[in-house]
């Protein structure tokens, strides 16, 4: 199949970018979208031109590195799919396809389709963990965890930290990402002791990075490749409200 690509090209964060058109020929339907870009890049390099920079690593949908907005939708139009798992059989011969990077102020541009997502790491550093050092643990079966809680935790923990939720949100909100971690750790007995402090610090870090707020449009949920649901945002809001209440009533946690 043949395609016309409209791709965002930008040398670095300090120079403006623009859309550039590429004609792509003889693409096999079994290729992934990234393999199609590999083919484009190989041809560009052979012609002495600059290839298109894009991030990818595991190429099996779990590392969260790949991050392209395809035809206006983060990770493309297939539900619950990362770009690396999006195959060309889902495109039409002759189609024009636009490819852009994640767009959100906290994700600063690096080159072409590559952005800096270290803001996510800083949010986790602020509280996205259980404070247990190596060697302090008791026997793993000493604290039973109700299966339903373990499953809820796992549903939330499935987040791959790709940032599609932010890229799809008109407010560039990171609430789905933060809520997933808050819910994962907060729904387990091991994580409940620092629940208030965790949500407080993570929300504070999220705000400091410049992510917007949630207005419940649900676009994040619809593009999330791992199916993280809005319920977790509701849960985080509840936890956060509780933390504020405790802070104000003098039942501090800091």
């Amino acid at each position: 199949m043949n395609l016309k690509l409209q791709v965002w090209k930008q040398s670095n964060g300090s120079t403006p970018g623009q859309m550039v058109e590429y004609q792509v020929k003889d693409i096999m339907p079994d290729m992934s979208f990234l393999e199609m870009l590999d083919v484009v890049n190989e041809d560009l390099i052979k012609e002495g031109k600059e290839p298109i920079a894009f991030d990818s690593d595991c190429r099996e949908g779990i590392c969260g590195t790949c991050s392209l907005v395809i035809n206006g939708i983060p990770h493309g139009h297939r539900e619950r799919t990362t770009v690396c798992q999006l195959h060309m059989r889902h495109f039409r011969d002759g189609e024009t396809v636009t490819v852009e990077p994640w767009r959100a102020r906290p994700f600063t541009p690096i080159k072409d389709l590559v952005v800096n997502r270290s803001a996510f790491d800083r949010i986790i550093q602020a509280g996205g963990f259980i404070s247990v050092s190596t060697g302090q643990a008791q026997d793993a079966n000493a604290i039973p965890v109700p299966k339903v809680d373990a499953e809820t935790a796992m549903d939330a923990a499935a987040c791959i930290g790709c940032g599609a939720c932010v890229a799809s949100c008109k407010n560039a909100s990171a609430m789905l990402f933060v809520a997933a971690k808050v819910s994962h750790l907060g729904s387990l007995p091991q994580g409940k002791w620092e629940k208030d402090r965790r949500v407080w610090n993570m929300v504070k870090a999220m705000d400091a990075e410049g992510f917007g707020n949630c207005t419940n449009t649900g676009s994040c949920e619809s593009v999330c490749p791992k199916g993280i649901t809005l319920n977790f945002i509701a849960r985080m809001n509840r936890d956060y409200a509780m933390a504020i209440f405790k802070a104000q009533s003098g039942e501090g946690f800091e």
Binding site: I130, V132, A140
Partner: peptide, 9 residues
């Protein structure tokens, strides 16, 4: 033990 304590589901 360590992983369960860290909240690995």
């Amino acid at each position: 033990d360590q992983c369960a304590a860290q909240g690995v589901p």
